[in-house]
């Protein structure tokens, strides 16, 4: 059933043109998104904006405290998620039998699909009401940590899997126990992959609004950094943008929102940029 060459050629050209067209539209959209954020953001950006706290009225003052609050909450999320994800990754790759590991992986993939707002209302019930913490930055950090735990775990397990088999055989051959193999070989040999996975998880955590909305953040009237846990919310960039967006008909609020948006964008970009060289190193780790 030979077709005519012309018809086949036309179909090929049509299909490829449709794909390239989609690619061009996507690229244009992506470019427009970045351009709009950068363009509007740079207008609002100044040294004063970055180094002064926000004032009482929406849109007045800077975002210094929001930057500090976001970094504070993200850093604690990193401290909380790291031991948990390490534990889960070691169980997945080293400790569990094959069946348990497969089940755990399926479970983690499912948990990764839990919408972030559910962390928000669960956190509201558990921390704000049940524990009586009121709004607390720690609740926010815990929720963000749990939200990224499945992703970080899976990427860490993959980083561990990439270690060459020779190392493990040697370690086993030297008579190391499973625990010592984990400490002396698996973790040090995959460390670049671990950093990369963590940074990508944190990039997501830093920009999330829904889990911290009712649990961890305030609009203003808060110290730069918390002095305790109970009733100690922080200011955060995503929530700041969220609140200002609702007043965006006011040009001052819109300008401040853009300024905060480009700062948040830069923060997320910094996490990505920091992870890029690690990707290459992780590849080298895998190839050795």
């Amino acid at each position: 059933m030979r077709e005519r060459g012309g018809w086949r050629r036309a179909r090929r050209v049509g299909f490829e043109a449709a794909c390239v067209g989609a690619g061009v539209v996507s690229a244009a959209l992506l470019f427009a998104i970045v351009a709009a954020t950068v363009w509007n953001g740079f207008d609002a950006l100044s040294l004063e904006f970055l180094t002064s706290p926000s004032a009482g009225r929406p849109g007045e003052g800077g975002v210094l405290h929001q930057i500090l609050g976001t970094i504070w909450m993200t850093a604690w999320a990193a401290l909380i998620v790291s031991p948990l994800a390490l534990a889960c990754a070691l169980v997945l790759e080293l400790l569990a039998d094959r069946k348990t590991a497969r089940l755990l992986r399926v479970l983690l993939n499912a948990l990764n699909a839990v919408p972030s707002i559910l962390f928000g209302i669960f956190g509201y019930y558990l921390f704000v009401r049940f524990f009586g913490w009121g709004k607390s930055w720690l609740a926010g950090s815990i929720l963000l940590a749990m939200m990224i735990a499945p992703t970080v775990t899976v990427s860490w397990a993959d980083a561990m899997r990439a270690i060459s088999a020779g190392y493990l055989e040697t370690a086993r051959g030297l008579g190391l126990s499973t625990g010592r193999v984990a400490l002396a070989v698996v973790i040090p040999q995959s460390v670049h992959g671990l950093w990369r996975g963590l940074l990508l998880g944190l990039a997501r955590a830093a920009g999330e609004t829904a889990p911290i909305l009712f649990t961890a953040v305030a609009l203003n009237g808060v110290d730069a950094l918390p002095r305790g846990i109970v009733d100690n919310p922080v200011l955060a960039l995503p929530y700041h943008i969220f609140a200002l967006s609702q007043d965006a008909y006011d040009p001052a609020a819109a300008a401040a929102a853009w300024g905060a948006a480009i700062v948040l964008f830069a923060l997320v970009l910094a996490f990505f940029a920091a992870s890029l060289p690690l990707r290459l190193r992780a590849h080298e780790e895998a190839r050795r």
């Binding site: 998104i33 920009g207 999330e208 995503p238 948006a261 997320v268």
Partner: peptide, 12 residues
């Protein structure tokens, strides 16, 4: 772009 925070998309 997959990593741009959703609140930034909201503002846009």
């Amino acid at each position: 772009l997959a990593g741009v925070p959703s609140v930034v998309y909201g503002l846009l």
